[in-house]
Simulated scan of single mutants.
Amino acid sequence: MFMGEFQHNIDTKGRIIVPSKFREELGATFVVTRGLDQCLFAYPMTEWKVLEEKLKKLPLTKRDARAFTRFFFSGAIECEIDKQGRINIPQTLRTYASLEKECVIIGVSNRIEIWSHSTWETYVTESEESFAEIAENLMDFDI
């Protein structure tokens, strides 16, 4: 399980250090793709395959299913961690997530997320204001 929040900088070549706490669980290769809320999602291969199977089952006749699948898979890349513990994020994904210098990498159960520091701060501030309401809405899911 991934959890925690880490601050790292992305360099001019698009490389960012993956927290050592996450490296082993991500494995030798893993997938990074566009996520929701203007961040990137990174999945270990086992989790990616589970998600891939679920997305394959979506009906091709549904416009939303086609759009989401395109969005998700077209941005996906396989990554490997280099000897310095870094991954290289392509420019298209850096642009999507507004990754320029300061970044935040968080663990979210079965995946990690990579955020621009400013986008993360805005998200946290907005979410804190409505956290009680969000929790109340999730009560139906026995949380």
Rank of each mutant, 00 (worst) to 15 (best):
residue 91 Q to A: 12
residue 94 R to D: 07
residue 89 I to L: 10
residue 93 L to K: 12
residue 27 G to H: 05
residue 130 S to Y: 08
residue 46 T to I: 08
residue 143 I to T: 13
residue 133 E to F: 04
residue 91 Q to E: 14
residue 119 T to I: 13
residue 119 T to E: 15
residue 12 T to M: 08
residue 33 T to Y: 09
residue 26 L to W: 04
residue 140 D to S: 04
residue 74 S to P: 00
residue 83 K to H: 10
residue 115 W to D: 03
residue 43 Y to Q: 09
residue 89 I to H: 10
residue 122 T to H: 02
residue 73 F to G: 03
residue 100 E to F: 04
residue 26 L to C: 02
residue 83 K to I: 08
residue 46 T to K: 13
residue 23 R to E: 06
residue 97 A to L: 07
residue 115 W to R: 06
residue 44 P to Y: 08
residue 63 R to Q: 13
residue 34 R to I: 01
residue 67 A to K: 15
residue 109 S to T: 12
residue 78 E to Y: 07
residue 59 P to I: 01
residue 113 E to Y: 13
residue 109 S to N: 14
residue 86 R to V: 01
residue 13 K to V: 01
residue 25 E to M: 09
residue 17 I to T: 13
residue 34 R to H: 11
residue 52 E to R: 14
residue 99 L to V: 08
residue 140 D to F: 00
residue 50 V to L: 12
residue 10 I to S: 01
residue 52 E to A: 09
residue 84 Q to M: 07
residue 64 D to L: 09
residue 142 D to P: 00
residue 137 N to W: 00
residue 142 D to I: 10
residue 82 D to Y: 11
residue 98 S to K: 14
residue 138 L to C: 09
residue 8 H to E: 08
residue 119 T to Q: 14
residue 95 T to I: 15
residue 69 T to E: 04
residue 3 M to N: 06
residue 34 R to W: 08
residue 61 T to C: 00
residue 57 K to Y: 06
residue 91 Q to T: 11
residue 83 K to R: 14
residue 116 S to M: 06
residue 99 L to R: 07
residue 107 G to A: 07
residue 79 C to V: 02
residue 71 F to M: 12
residue 29 T to M: 10
residue 24 E to N: 12
residue 3 M to E: 04
residue 42 A to C: 15
residue 128 E to N: 14
residue 31 V to N: 01
residue 48 W to S: 02
residue 7 Q to G: 00
residue 1 M to F: 02
residue 132 A to I: 15
residue 79 C to K: 04
residue 77 I to S: 05
residue 10 I to G: 01
residue 93 L to V: 11
residue 121 E to Q: 14
residue 98 S to H: 13
residue 61 T to N: 12
residue 125 T to L: 10
residue 53 E to S: 11
residue 32 V to W: 06
residue 25 E to G: 01
residue 137 N to D: 13
residue 134 I to Q: 12
residue 92 T to K: 15
residue 43 Y to H: 13
residue 2 F to R: 06
residue 26 L to Y: 03
residue 16 I to K: 02
residue 30 F to E: 01
residue 92 T to F: 13
residue 124 V to R: 03
residue 5 E to W: 00
residue 123 Y to D: 02
residue 84 Q to L: 09
residue 54 K to A: 04
residue 108 V to E: 01
residue 133 E to Y: 06
residue 72 F to G: 02
residue 65 A to D: 11
residue 3 M to R: 06
residue 94 R to V: 09
residue 141 F to I: 03
residue 13 K to N: 12
residue 89 I to G: 05
residue 92 T to H: 15
residue 19 P to T: 08
residue 14 G to N: 04
residue 114 I to G: 02
residue 4 G to H: 05
residue 134 I to L: 15
residue 52 E to L: 14
residue 1 M to A: 06
residue 12 T to N: 15
residue 103 C to P: 06
residue 56 K to Y: 12
residue 82 D to S: 05
residue 54 K to L: 05
residue 123 Y to F: 13
residue 48 W to D: 03
residue 76 A to K: 14
residue 15 R to E: 09
residue 58 L to S: 11
residue 88 N to T: 12
residue 138 L to E: 10
